[in-house]
Amino acid sequence: MSELLRIENLHVSVGEKELLHGLDLTVRAGEVHVIMGVNGAGKSTLLHAIMGNPAYTVTEGRIWFEGQDITELSTDKRARLGLFLSFQAPISVAGISMENFIRTAKTAVSGQQQRLFPFKRLLKARLQDLAMDPSYAERYLNDGFSGGERKKSEILQMRILDPKLAMLDETDSGLDVDAVRIVSKNISDFHNETNAVILITHLNQILKFIRPDHVHILIGGRIVKEGGPELVDEVEANGFDAYRSLAGEA
């Protein structure tokens, strides 16, 4: 399987404070990676650093995507290369409809003008997949949406933009049991041998539907343990205490 993402010795800071202290990660096409860890461990920081959030500064190390060094690339260019981040707290923008926004974004990432009626059909089908009413297409972007609806909106965008690497930051939080099932099915339907998923989660619910290939435990800005799906059960049984000492934490 071809390599999509490679991170070497990544150090990331916000202001004077370093949040990631030399992190390595490789993601290949067809893989699902799960990152677990306590609150404040640096999980979201990692995804934002990969996406190029200007609030985070890479002070050392490099990020490659499909062999291209993207460490200095702007966020929009990374998105056009095929990176996607589902936000933990998606932004709302009143005044632009979901349909207009996603169509504009699809045009931007695909480089191809989206014809109106085929796009409408695609949007309608994807809304249906997520058990969302077609009227959501006319609503302003995430405006007035509940927490669960915003998470579904992120998955809707992921499915239509069809990235090569989807990074999902606690997409399952705030979802009820049925919604977790629906979202999980959509992630499964999206995932194939040519793309990859990095999933941050605190819950095992979603992992009943999506089987990870690799699990990484992130504590104190470092990956302290890596393994297969069995690691999820280990965390479920013992919590994170056993890993704190590996990170040099009490």
């Binding site: 702007s74 929009d76 998105a79 933009l161």
Partner: peptide
């Protein structure tokens, strides 16, 4: 809001 600009850029839109 820079956070809003970042969100929109993460969907492929230029600054």
């Amino acid at each position: 809001d820079p956070g809003t600009v970042y969100y929109l850029m993460s969907r492929g839109l230029t600054k």
